[in-house]
Design a protein around this nucleic acid. Sequence first.
RNA 1: GCCCGGGUGGCGGAAUGGCAGACGCGGCGGACUCAAAAUCCGCUGUCCGAAAGGGCGUGUGGGUUCGAAUCCCACCCCGGGCACCA
Length: 846
Amino acid sequence: MAESVAPEATPSHPDDFERYRPADIEPRWQQRWLDDKTYEVDNEEILQTDAEDIRFVLSMYPYPSGPAHIGHVRNYTFGDLLVRYHTMNGRKVLSPIGFDSFGLPAENAAIKSGEHPRPFTDARIEELSSSLRRIGAVYDWRRMVKSHDPSYIKWNQVIFLRLYEEGLIYRKNSPVNWCPGCQTVLANEQVVDGLCERSDDPVERRDMEQWFYRITDYAQELLDDLDGLEWPDRVKIMQRNWIGRSEGAEFGLPIADSDGNPRTDTPPLAVYTTRPDTSFGMTFAVMSPEHPRVDELTIPSQIDEVRAFQKDASGKSEIDRLSTVGSADKRGVFTGSYAINPVTGGSIPIYLADYVLTTYGTGAIMAVPGQDQRDWDFATAYGLDIVRTVQPPEGFDGEAFTGDGPAINSASDALDLNGMEVAEAKAAATDWIEAQGLGERRVNFRLRDWLLSRQRFWGCPIPIVYCDEHGAQPAPLSDLPIEAPDDVEFLPTGESPLNHHRGFLDTTCPVCGNPARRETDTMDTFVDSSWYFLRFADPWNDEAPINKAAVEKFLPVDQYIGGIEHAILHLMYARFFTKALADVGLSPSTIREPMKRLFTQGMVRMGGGKMSKSKGNTVAPEETVDAHGADALRLAILQVKPPAEDVDYEDFQLDGCERFLQRVWRLAIPGSDLTTNMRSGEPTPADIEIDKATHHLIARVTGEYERWSYNTAVAGFMEFTNALYKYVQASDGAHDETLDFAVNTLLELMAPAVPHISGELRERRDQSNIHLAHWPVADPAKLVVDTVTMIVQVNGKVRDRIDVPSEISEADAEALALSSEAVQGHLDGEPKKIIVRAPKLVNIVV
RNA sequence: GCCCGGGUGGCGGAAUGGCAGACGCGGCGGACUCAAAAUCCGCUGUCCGAAAGGGCGUGUGGGUUCGAAUCCCACCCCGGGCACCA
């Protein structure tokens, strides 16, 4: 064994060698990753690669709002770590980036400045791209997709026409949010507390012809396929709730004549219920104010009151209607007509009420106040009968009872449900309804068709032409892309300039060739984000929007990363598009779900509140990078909190992270003052311990990267670095090979997290590129532990800790535990029971 | 109202039925320095104790278990989603 040599004149001051200066090394590495094309993958190669060696890691493409904000940085750091980790594992990793570049902020800026949104948007994209490069995020930039790019517009329009051709898009009249001040329709997001976010005018409801996707055709599949996705449970739950499947029965209530007998001259009133078992408690029926049979069923003496009620309800904005929750007064009106409760044969009054929605079920309900609180409130306000049909438990002092219990008051000559529990009674009542020919079982969904029209300029034009004679006609493929013109004037009213641009509006009918007019509505920007991930597989394709062979190789996305705010809209639309595009043959039939695994990272807040430009509490990551370096910022993001949770920017420990990187630098830089006391030859027990710790760290960090436990992985780096500091400062010095392996491994494990410093140090140590296939593998033999600390408890309280061989027998462990002095002191009397879990624990019960 | 998630030191957090508080921040002390910064080393839940040691301790109350931050029941508080969906 080599003698340890006490070094002479050891430099004890870290300034004696080159210090870690992120600004000196980071730009060089960022340029190098571009030059070396390390993170580019070629399709020719991919088509020859097994699927298991391919990964598609995707962070939700950003809206280009300018330089990155700290939330972006958090999001893209997580994605970047995975891209680098999989690359180091020798996989082909698709890491594309794109920009969701259509949308309101750019249009609003244009309205303010009078300038076209395109140069504005292009400048913002440049800024955001630059900040992403500055935090060291790596992409295959050749694959960049931008929503406002003419080729993307073209394929978006091709997809629209195909879905239209297949009947998955239709046009219908629909109520929209109308701002009288701006003379335009607003998206729901633009309505804040019932007011227009721009002009503060109260928003009105207005009916307009709008385009819709038939997403409801896919309701059941969207629900069923959630089961196979590795997505956070809460996202799946939110989607399930949004789809809102309910099982019940739809049946008819015969309309009664003045004697209470069923009329034969008019059809029964169709109602939908999930509780057919409560039919004996149906004491009235309610139609929505907009129900098509209101006129027919209103008797002459009630007409004025009904008209007034309808007018009131229709004039009310969404907000007004919601604000009436709780007060049942003036929320309904009697039509004067009666229906017949088919199970009792009795007459029940038919009301209108605004708590019944036209768009759900049949737009009419059977009201059962005994078992439904809204019906209870209404019955109480209008003096209607209340009959309980489910026995509430003893001591129940609520109003409507919605729980389980035996049926009561539920028998007639025709049907007897009394005594049955809810589920049984439901089945019996539904069977009876079907047997009587009154109606049938029915599944309803809350999911509505997706309204895609926007009366906006800065979006993808809907490729439709209106002809006086032939109506709405698809634009010919040869016209695509139909782009918004450049020579437009933005009106201060906010109205889309397309409405007044003759060059854009005037066209000819594809059927008859006569003058026709282009659709001026554009597509919801969620359309753009519903298939961009499919385009990434082959963004160069000029034959079709989607290259099926490439998509089959890359998709589904192995890891999708984004904010929880997209849990419903974007993620539901993307799933719908994937299914619909497969069904119309534009995308491979084998890919029915776009994202296999989803991770939703938390928000970055400021002082407990959401960060926003208007609050002026944003943090510019660029300044943080200037002050501490990109690696310190990345490390602070990873260290501060589990990725799924919201985080306050104040909790970021930038100084601590930078200090840690300095420590690593000092340990790893060749010529460091810390590594002068080195020896070779046979390793000592201390060396062997360090070597084992290195292998344990490999196993630990690999597992933590796989399960998104980045904060504990950072703790692992720090613990190991602390251990190495002790090791190199020990009096007998460090073993050269052991330390070399330990430090190189540490750098490799850290490389996905802090790529610049890891790359720099490793290159200086042995001229190799750490970012290539270098992921270390733990030697199982070195993970074996020979001694463990056995916990000895008395009555569950820890009384002693004894180091024992890890293969200790139960008998030996027990004997050892009983002989411990510390334990003896706590044993008064004979042990009643001894639990032995060798080698970890012995618990003595007295 | 319904449905989720969460409550652990001064702070961010760790611990997937077996040593509560890893790691970091902050704080305290020491070394180095003329001094400071930087750096390195140590201590740091709380109460009693000079110490050895011991008591208490994961929102509250109960339960299961040899053993509970972890599982079960009830409640309180915080955050989020949906909100007349029959």
